[in-house]
Computed example of a mutant assay.
Amino acid sequence: MESIVQSPYTSEQIAAWLRGLLTIAWADGNFDSQEQQSIASITQDQLAPGLNSESLEVIEPAQLATIIGKGTPAAENFLRTAVMVAIADGTYSPSEDQVLHQFCQALEQPDDILKALRQTLETPEQVAIAPTAPKAPAPDTLTPIRNWLDGLDIQDPAVARFLCKMIPSQCPFERDITLFKHKIVHIPPLCKINPLYEQMVGLRFRALSYLADECGEDVSPYI
């Protein structure tokens, strides 16, 4: 998929960027081998067709920092997209937090945002046993991370396409989980589980607008 926009990043940086996002997506173990292969296929065939299959494996923090750079705007923008991927399913797991913390250290970025994130999102275990949506944190607790996420500058078509694929196009419906015809848990809509859902929707819209307006691409496959 070609774009009329020239990316400010090298092909090596984009490959490392996407590998970092895939590392986050797979961190909590919610993707089996078939799902991992499917996401890798989407990344290779639709988002960055120039990459070979080996470049779609997970990446170590030190290698990511060597390629993207330490303490750079690119490093900060990568972390913003990584956080978005981590909370795309409405939960923030300890394994995702561990990987993000390692990325912060390697990229020489402050992890203050992660401390706020730990206080605002539930883990999958907590969501699974909660009969109702978690109580929303105080607005002043959310403001720093909301402002930080809103500062993401989308400058590369491949990254924009990845975000459009990973972030749901609409708030999934609430649902009941049943076992032997008995309801064992009620899952609220994602927009109620995730207090940062508006930031995700805004990012997806900006990614779509970037692809359509700046890159001249057909965004109908993502809608």
Rank of each mutant, 00 (worst) to 15 (best):
214 E>V: 13
156 D>E: 13
58 V>G: 12
189 P>M: 02
2 E>M: 15
124 P>I: 00
159 V>R: 10
86 A>T: 01
15 A>L: 15
143 T>P: 05
82 A>I: 01
149 L>Q: 04
21 L>T: 05
63 Q>T: 10
2 E>I: 15
222 Y>H: 04
154 I>R: 09
61 P>T: 04
120 T>N: 05
1 M>D: 11
132 T>H: 13
109 Q>N: 04
206 R>W: 04
85 V>D: 08
51 L>K: 03
168 P>Q: 05
26 W>T: 14
162 F>Y: 15
59 I>T: 12
60 E>V: 09
197 Y>V: 03
21 L>I: 02
191 C>W: 00
169 S>A: 11
158 A>E: 07
26 W>E: 13
214 E>D: 14
27 A>R: 07
178 T>V: 10
217 E>W: 01
113 I>E: 07
64 L>Q: 06
115 K>D: 06
190 L>M: 13
208 L>G: 12
72 T>M: 06
207 A>T: 00
155 Q>W: 02
130 A>Y: 08
199 Q>S: 14
134 P>E: 02
131 P>E: 00
44 Q>P: 03
105 Q>K: 14
137 P>N: 01
91 T>W: 02
187 I>K: 03
219 V>M: 02
146 R>Y: 05
158 A>R: 12
52 N>P: 02
178 T>S: 10
212 A>V: 00
115 K>M: 07
200 M>T: 02
140 D>R: 14
50 G>S: 09
197 Y>I: 03
81 T>H: 12
171 C>Y: 00
209 S>I: 02
3 S>E: 04
32 D>W: 06
2 E>S: 13
48 A>W: 08
187 I>Y: 13
140 D>L: 11
121 L>R: 05
45 D>W: 14
212 A>D: 10
63 Q>A: 08
47 L>Y: 10
117 L>K: 06
218 D>Q: 08
11 S>G: 07
188 P>R: 02
